[in-house]
Structures are given as structure tokens and as C-alpha cells.
Design a protein around this nucleic acid. Structure first.
Length: 625
DNA sequence: TAGAGAGGCACC
DNA sequence: AAACGGTGCCTCTCTA
């Protein structure tokens, strides 16, 4: 057995590399002596769903704070067995971003994930509970390469970040191509790999005491780990892609894109994505651009904008061509091609569902498909995703078909604001089933005229409701909702007068943020705030608390056996693949589980059953109106 | 040639 | 007094 020594702030770290089966005796002795171990895996890539089909686990590493063992899983079955035994024997484990490593152990080594995940701490979850901010927001960040320098050792942290880049350079391959080709016993690779379980082990001990007492008392640590088990299972199941539909749309969009790109090129715009070219050509055609982009470091005054609103305001074949080509290009590359190219052998895509990610702890969906950003206006893109294939009997007859159903919370954040602030007028509106946007408009502009079903200034009311919830003011209502300045001013002051308790809540959150630099949500989550933007605090409380209402729903749905039917979570909506014969019953039950009473106000959940594709749910909704 | 910054665009 | 919140991915451009 080879051992590599590493000096961590003067302390000696030993990485033991198992080279032949005899070395496993020492490894098992280590496992017996360490009821808590950090662990990690090294693989050929990130596509664990292709295990046995181009993907495999190369190394598995286990360690405590000062030593680790690297097991060369790739070499043979005896090492896979050793990893299985180690995982079974361990009392507790800790990994950074445990979901990935557990997917690897499940898909490539056949390890049952449930008992494993139940005893594994995830340091990403703990890091988020301590400081949920991203690096660019002034936070520590959530990646191992962010956490190690901050919590353990800056110098070693820099090495973590650089080492695989250096190895790739040595092998003369791109960084993302190094994983399958680096020699399994490359010393630098072994050092990188062997340090990971040590980092995870040390981070656990650093982070646990830093989790706010209030979060601990409210059980957030175990709650978040439990939620992650639910999203883990959804990741594993994946979402079925309609190959024929997707291919047809790619062909159609490619043609459309080419057609409009050719028109743009005739006017001199070779790259429709190049703002520079668009500005140059439009200017030469005599159009005067005035809208500017947001000020940045590089451009303190902002640059001329060529976004959708600018192009739409110019009636010309060039702008029309750019808009159409861009739209086709985005649909093609971001969704359809991603869905097609990331399918596993069963035609499913396995996006990463990051159960605790945004500053507010909102979940994000990344990787295989950006499922949270699929266009929602029509079913055009969402048609590419299907409820499961039918079940067949032995004779090949269909015994059960599957349909897509969605259940969502409507106006969840505004309802939460009403309940949380206990604003009497807002609560009365919701309890009476009144339209809050009309109520806000009426508060600002007078009652709804006789005989009208909606307020003529409902749009100003709606814009104001949402904008205030986001921490915005009249200026944002004016620019973002295309409301006149005078109406925007009146609507916003009308809002605060109509709902005085929300004003109180806003002030309370802002004051807390100013005073202590953080706020707590109703679940005891601490969210650090920016000194320069204390007004954002109320939105953090609303957004994060609503995320937790969804998290609670997912955990309850899991307990009720719904996980096998769940496909995606989109903030306030869950997408299901239900057996057709039980779709009514299951959708109703899911909505019942999801609905939530907060401070006496029922936040309802509404179900919608479509046909086979996700898109069909949207088309059905369209036809209703 | 990789990475960062910026703009743009899709979502809740 | 007023201050819009949270994301991810693609493309282009410039730099180290």
C-alpha cells in the first residue's frame, strides 16, 4: 500500500492508496475504528445515469480528519465489494453534495441508497444553513472549493481548485475531459481524491456548531436531509422524453432559424447574438437606440441595449428576423437539443434537482435540462416531456396508461404575505374569494365601475401587488409593468394605505436586516442580508417561507407514497406522471396534502390533469379560457 | 484556449 | 423617502 503525506497547516495528513486486495485489511480496520467517515467518489464524468454504458466509478475514498483510504474501484469486483461493506459497516457518513456520490454508488455499485442516505450528512446542506449566499453575493458559497479555503485552510483550498486543472494541462486535455483519462494511480490525482473525504469530515465539524441555534431547534438539519432524499429519488427516476416529437421540432426550428438568420445577414448582421453588430447595423439604418443596459464594472454607464423590447419597438424586417431567429435558436439549443442529447438508454433525462440552492433556499434544476425555465405560454416545448410508458400484460395488451398532472399553489407568495402580516383587508379579500388585483386597483383609483367585472386599472393593481412583494417601488411598477408614472405612484401608495399591516411587516424585516444583518424565516432559517439592500429582507422571508411550504409538501407526499409519480418541482408546482385510471383520485389527494394553513389562512393547491405530455396540461388550460 | 464578464432570455 | 426578489443556460467578446 502506498501512502501519500500532505501537510495541512503543519499537521500531517496521510492518504493510503489501496493497491492490492491485501491492503483492504488495513482499510477495514480503519472502517471499524471510525464510526463516522467522510466519503467521496471519483468517476468518469457527471452522467451517473449512464452507469455501465460509458460511465463508471473510478475511485471511492473514505477518511476522517487526518487520514484517508483511496479504493481503486475501477480495478475490480473485490474493491467494489470492499466499498459496499464499508458503507454498510459505517455508522455515519458525511459527503459534500452527497446526492451525486450516492447516485454513483447506487447506479454503478448497486448499493441500496435508502439506508445509505439516511446515515449520511451532506455538508452542502449544512453550509447553506450557515450562509446561503453565493460567492458573488459576498457569501462563502456552497462548493467544496469555496468552503475549504474559508472554513479550513486558504492555501489548501486554492490547491483544491487548481489541481485538476493542472493535471488536465499535464495530460494536454480540456478540464472536463480529464476525469476518464487520468491515470488511476497518478499521484496528484490520488492526492486530490484522497483529500476530499478529509475535507468533508472536517467541514462537518466546522459547520455543525455554526448552524443557528434557532434552525437546529426547529429541526432544519434533519428536515433538509429528508427533503433531499425526496429530490434524490426524483432525479433517479428522471423524465421521459418524446424522441420523435423532439427531433421533429429541432428540424423545424433549425429551418426557421436558418431562414431568419439569412435575412439578418442580408442586412449585415452575421451573428444575431452579437449586440455589437445589431447596434452598428441599426444605427447605420438611421434608428436611434436609447435604452441602456444595467451599469456594470466594465461599463459604468451601461451599454446600448438590443433586447426584446428594443427590437419590438422597431418595425423593420431586420428586427423581425433577429427576434424570430433568436427565439428559434433558444428553443432548439436550450431545451430540445439538451433533452435529446442527455437521455439515458431508456429515453429519460435526469436533471439535478438541487434541493437547497438559492439564497432563499429555493430549489433549482440544473444539468440535463433547465426544467424550471421551459416556456409556459404554450405546450410547444413541454410537449417533449411525457408521462410514463404504458404497463403491458404478458400478451402485450395495455393494462395501464399514464397521464401528466400538475398541482400548484396559486398566488402563494401574496397569500403568504397576507397571512404573515395578518393584514385584515388582504385576508378578507382572500377569505371572500375576491380578486386582490382588483382590490388594490380600487384602493388606489376608486371602486370598480358599475357593471364591470374587473377594475379598469387591474393591471396596475396586479403589477403593484407583485412588485411590492419583491421589494420594489413605484418606479419598478412603472418600468416593468408599463404603467404610467402617475398611476404607478398612486397604485403603490394605495397599496400601503390599503394594507397597513404589510407596511408594518416590511418595516420590521427591513429594520431587522439593518440592525443584525440577517432575518429569520418562519421555519427558523437564517438569511443573511446585504447592508445596501435591507428592503430585500421581506421578500427573502416570503420567498423562503413559501419554499418551505413546498418542501413540507414534498416530504408529506413522499410519506404518502407519491414519490414514484413525481417528476419535477417548479417552485410552486409539482409535475406528476399518474396512472390514468387513478389520475382523478391521486391529483385530488396530492392537492389535499399540498394545501397548507398558515396563521389561519388556507393556501390552496389546484390540480390539473392533462394527456400524455406535460404540454397537454397547458393546452388544456388554454382551451378553458 | 480556457475562463470571466456581460447581455439576453426563459421561468416562478 | 425610496429602494423589484430568486434562478440557469446560451452566445459573444475580451483577456490571461
Amino acid at each position: 500500500m502506498k501512502s501519500i503525506d500532505y501537510a495541512l497547516k503543519g499537521e500531517r495528513i496521510s492518504i493510503h492508496v489501496v493497491e492490492n486486495p491485501d491492503d483492504l485489511f488495513a482499510f477495514f480496520k480503519f472502517v471499524e475504528a471510525n464510526p463516522l467517515m467522510g466519503f467521496d467518489t471519483e468517476t468518469t464524468g457527471l452522467d451517473w445515469w449512464n452507469a455501465g454504458d460509458g460511465f463508471h466509478c473510478r475511485l471511492a475514498q473514505f477518511g476522517n480528519g487526518i487520514e484517508s483510504y483511496v479504493i481503486p474501484v475501477e480495478v475490480g469486483a473485490v474493491y467494489k465489494d470492499a466499498v459496499r461493506r464499508a458503507v454498510e459497516r459505517a455508522e455515519r457518513l458525511v459527503a459534500h453534495n452527497r446526492g451525486f456520490d450516492i447516485h454513483v454508488l447506487e447506479s454503478d455499485l448497486g448499493i441500496d441508497p435508502e439506508p445509505l442516505i439516511r446515515k449520511t450528512y451532506c455538508t452542502k446542506i449544512l453550509a447553506h444553513l450557515v450562509d446561503s449566499r453565493a460567492v458573488k453575493e459576498g457569501g462563502v458559497g456552497l462548493r467544496l472549493e469555496d468552503l475549504v479555503p474559508h472554513y479550513i485552510d486558504a492555501e489548501s483550498g486554492a490547491k483544491v481548485k487548481k489541481s485538476m486543472t493542472d493535471i488536465a494541462r499535464r495530460y494536454k486535455v480540456k478540464k472536463e475531459e480529464i476525469w476518464p483519462v487520468v491515470d488511476l494511480f497518478d499521484e496528484e490525482y490520488l492526492l486530490y481524491a484522497g483529500m476530499d473525504p478529509i475535507w468533508a469530515y472536517r467541514l462537518l465539524h466546522k459547520l455543525l456548531p455554526l448552524v443557528p441555534v434557532r434552525s437546529k431547534r426547529r429541526g432544519l438539519i434533519s428536515w433538509e436531509h429528508r427533503l433531499h432524499w425526496v429530490t434524490y429519488q426524483m432525479e433517479r427516476t428522471g423524465y421521459l422524453v418524446d424522441e420523435n416529437y423532439t427531433r421533429a421540432r429541432i428540424a423545424e426550428l433549425t429551418e426557421e432559424e436558418a431562414k431568419y438568420k439569412a435575412i439578418a445577414a442580408e442586412f449585415g448582421v452575421k451573428n444575431i447574438g452579437s449586440s455589437q453588430q445589431v447596434i452598428a447595423v441599426l444605427t447605420s439604418l438611421g434608428f436611434v437606440l436609447t435604452k441602456r443596459t444595467k451599469p456594470s464594472k466594465k461599463f459604468p454607464e451601461g451599454q446600448l441595449s438590443t433586447d426584446d423590447s428594443v427590437l419590438k419597438s422597431i418595425d423593420h424586417p431586420l428586427t423581425e428576423a433577429i427576434l424570430k431567429a433568436k427565439s428559434a435558436s433558444k428553443k432548439r439549443s436550450t431545451w430540445f437539443e439538451a433533452a435529446l442529447s442527455n437521455r439515458d438508454r431508456n429515453g429519460r433525462v435526469h436533471a439535478a434537482i438541487n434541493s437547497i440552492q438559492a439564497r432563499s433556499a429555493r430549489m433549482t434544476i440544473t444539468g440535463a435540462i433547465a426544467a424550471q425555465t421551459l416556456p409556459s405560454g404554450t405546450g410547444y416545448v413541454r410537449h417533449a416531456f411525457l408521462a410514463d410508458d404504458p404497463d403491458y400484460d404478458d400478451e402485450g395488451n395495455i393494462v395501464e396508461e399514464y397521464v401528466t398532472a400538475t398541482v400548484d399553489y396559486s398566488s402563494m407568495e401574496l397569500m403568504f404575505l397576507a397571512a404573515d402580516s395578518e393584514d385584515r383587508r388582504m385576508l378578507r379579500a382572500y377569505r371572500n374569494g375576491e380578486d386582490l388585483h382588483d382590490i388594490t386597483a380600487a384602493a388606489a383609483f376608486g371602486p370598480i365601475p358599475e357593471g364591470e367585472s374587473h377594475h379598469p386599472k387591474r393591471k396596475a393593481g396586479k403589477g403593484t401587488n407583485y412588485t411590492v412583494c419583491f421589494g420594489g417601488g413605484w418606479h419598478a411598477v412603472h418600468t416593468q409593468w408599463d404603467i404610467s408614472e402617475a398611476d404607478a405612484r398612486r397604485a403603490v401608495s394605495g397599496f400601503w394605505e390599503a394594507y397597513p399591516a404589510t407596511k408594518k411587516l416590511s418595516r420590521k424585516c427591513t429594520d431587522e436586516a439593518k440592525r443584525q444583518g440577517f432575518i429569520y424565516t418562519v421555519t427558523g432559517r437564517r438569511i443573511l442580508t446585504d447592508p445596501k439592500r435591507p428592503y430585500a429582507a421581506m421578500n427573502y422571508r416570503i420567498q423562503s417561507s413559501c419554499r418551505d411550504i413546498m418542501a413540507r409538501a414534498l416530504i408529506e407526499l413522499d410519506a404518502a407514497g407519491f414519490t414514484k409519480w413525481m417528476r419535477l418541482v417548479i417552485h410552486d408546482e409539482i409535475v406528476f406522471s399518474f396512472p390514468k385510471s387513478r389520475a382523478e383520485e391521486l391529483t385530488k389527494k396530492a392537492a389535499e396534502i399540498m394545501q397548507f394553513v398558515y396563521k389561519g389562512l388556507l393556501i390552496p393547491a389546484d390540480g390539473e390533469i392533462g394527456g400524455r405530455s406535460w404540454g397537454s396540461v397547458l393546452d388544456k388550460e388554454d382551451s378553458k379560457h
